[in-house]
Amino acid sequence: MVEAYRPSSLEEALKIRADKGALPFAGGTDLMVKYRYESGAVPEYPAPVIFLTHLEEIRKIYSQDGELHLGAGTSLAELMSHSEVPELLKEAVRTIAAPGLRNTATLAGNICNASPAADGVCALYALDSRVKLSSPRSSRELAIYEFITGPGKTELREDELLTEIIIPRDRSTTRLFRKVGTRKANALSKLSIAAAARLSGERVDEVRIALGAVAPTVLRSVELEKQIQGLSRAELSERLEHFVQSYEAMVQPIDDQRSTAVYRKKVAVNLLRQFLTSIAA
């Protein structure tokens, strides 16, 4: 049998998490697959589970100081229908699985599962997102790329819960989200790209590019972005192949049951080039 807790407040949830080492269970759409058991058998989880999505404290979506705060308990469907959620994130979330799953799955779960192929996470990288982690005694914030450290690995401590996702306002003027999946719906990503840029006149003021499923974590190079920022569109056009090659060197995908390294690399680079071309002169 699975030992399960349904706390009535976030405070109680944090205490159970700390005391029991319970597994945070939000929509459950990853956990139920991970710990699936053959038909007719009772599932076995390595730890007690703690249900969370009913908690009012983490079901809010609100803006504060120009930033959007997404409560960890909000479902993908809820955030898709919220007016202040950035379009880039909505586009990514729209490609996740199918409506039934999006009604129950959460973005917080998508983050904590820490798959390099997570579509929502790819967009969060490109949006400079942060996560709020709470424990019974304190709370802290980490950038999304600091929080996720490898496939299935995060900085979440044994007494912490991810309670909020914080997204700075997206002021981009050009965006691209593209998921290349195993089919058109209910599909897992072979690779994905989430990119945003702000152009003012002929100048590239800001650019953020994230590539999914081509490295152990979502790939984003702030270094390369800095080199692009401030260039005129004509200058970017001249140096476009240089930047494409720099990204190409960083793209290190693998062969697996869904695709090949060669394909992932080629197509990631094609899509990246398409985006850079769209913002260059």
Partner: peptide
């Protein structure tokens, strides 16, 4: 769509997530 590869005598696509049959969207 339906790629089914064998490695060391085992099928590599063993779930309906990895062995992809068409949906009505395809």
């Amino acid at each position: 769509l339906e790629k089914l590869e064998v490695k060391d005598g085992r099928f590599q696509q063993r779930t309906m997530a990895d062995y992809t049959i068409p949906t009505s969207m395809d």
